[in-house]
Amino acid sequence: MKKHLRRVPGIGSALLALAVITACSPASSGGPKAGGETGPGGTKKVTIQIDGTAVPYYAPLYMAKEQGFFAKAGLDVSFTYAQGSDIVKNVAAGNVDFGFPNGDSVITAYGKGVKTRVVHTTYQQGIGALLSKADANISSPADLKGKTVAVTDLGSPNYIQLQAMLKSANLTVGDVKVKTIGTGAIVDALKNGQVDAIVFSRLRYYALKSAGVDVRQILSDQYLPSFGNVVVAGPDMVKNDPKTVKAFDDALDQGIDYTTKNPAAAVDTAVKKYAPTFNGQQKDVTTIVEDVFVKTLWQSDTTRQHGFGHPDEARWQKAIDAQAGFKLIDSSFKAGDLVVKPSALG
């Protein structure tokens, strides 16, 4: 599959007030029970529950519907939204057919006995980063010693990412001052000088640059492999209805391919039909899609060899082992028990 990558100039000013893939809205109850009702034209009705709220960065899913890729695959897909941990529970319980949570929450849930299967590694990397103002003079994890660093929660993936960064420099959390600041205030805390650095979404780098902040970033993936949003399904569905899972994956692949080749059109449609609060920000969002999602999140050496959504099991294993090492789960487990290669679905 040929991929089209373009380099894009700078970022405009109206950027990302709400644009965090991990932003959470109150959890949905999961809607109607999953299970194969018939939709228009004999299509099979399925529901996917998506992490957070509707944002244009979910354009590949929206384009798979709007461009008819789901319908051609025999699916009538509905979208609902919830928090990542609730999504995993709903998929495991069969309340929804598919989920699109953050990969880190999937690992944590699996390690605690809430079993789903990752059927499409949509984001090949995590979106965490250490962000700091230039005057803090933080260019590597070693420079964090004695600094004040904020995370949203001591149980969050970002806190684990901070620990991994510190470990790479032979430091521990005892060598820094850690503050917990909520999602809505953590970026302002950095802007206002309340902290020296934050570990949060790498997308906020663009928002800070747009606001005139001289900001630096260190991507968490350099120190701890992790994953952003991935598609999960229940073990029973993977075993008993692999055809539907494969059809969903194939249509999503087409949605990614369409968005990669037509980012402006995809973003415009996503904003108009699904995320109207981003109206007026289409140009800036398109730039981020082209510079971040197309180049590093949806694509990797693995996808260039095997296709969109293919898992790098070695990276998954490192992410699983890290959660065990940092006591987020009691013990490690085999990545192959969690992730499914799309090619294995038939």
Score class of each variant (00 low, 15 high):
H4N: 10
R7M: 13
G10Q: 14
I11C: 12
I11H: 11
S13G: 11
A14K: 07
L18S: 13
P26T: 10
P32M: 14
K33D: 13
K33L: 14
T38S: 10
G39H: 06
P40F: 01
K44A: 05
V46R: 09
V46H: 04
Q49A: 07
I50K: 10
D51Y: 02
T53Q: 12
Y58A: 08
P60R: 13
A64Q: 05
E66N: 13
G68P: 08
A71F: 02
A73E: 11
T80H: 03
Q83L: 05
S85C: 06
I87K: 03
A92F: 05
A92D: 06
A93Y: 00
G94C: 06
D97H: 07
D97F: 03
G103W: 10
A109F: 00
G111V: 06
V114I: 13
H120A: 12
T122Q: 14
T122S: 15
K133H: 04
S139H: 14
P141E: 01
A150R: 00
D153A: 03
G155R: 01
N158C: 06
L162N: 02
A164F: 06
A169M: 06
G174M: 03
D175K: 11
K179N: 01
I186T: 05
V187F: 10
A189R: 13
A189S: 07
L190H: 09
G193T: 11
Q194D: 14
A197H: 03
S201M: 05
A207W: 02
D214V: 08
V215R: 00
L219N: 14
S226H: 12
V230C: 07
V231L: 14
V231C: 10
V232F: 04
M237Q: 08
K239C: 02
D241L: 07
K243V: 15
V245C: 09
D253T: 09
D253R: 08
Q254F: 09
Y258Q: 03
Y258H: 08
N262Y: 07
N262I: 02
A266I: 11
V271C: 06
N279D: 05
G280Y: 08
Q282N: 14
D284M: 13
V285L: 15
T286H: 00
K295P: 03
T296R: 09
W298C: 00
T302F: 09
D312N: 10
R315W: 01
Q317I: 09
A319V: 06
K327H: 14
L328R: 11
L328A: 15
S331K: 13
S332H: 08
G336K: 08
L338K: 02
L338M: 04
V339C: 01
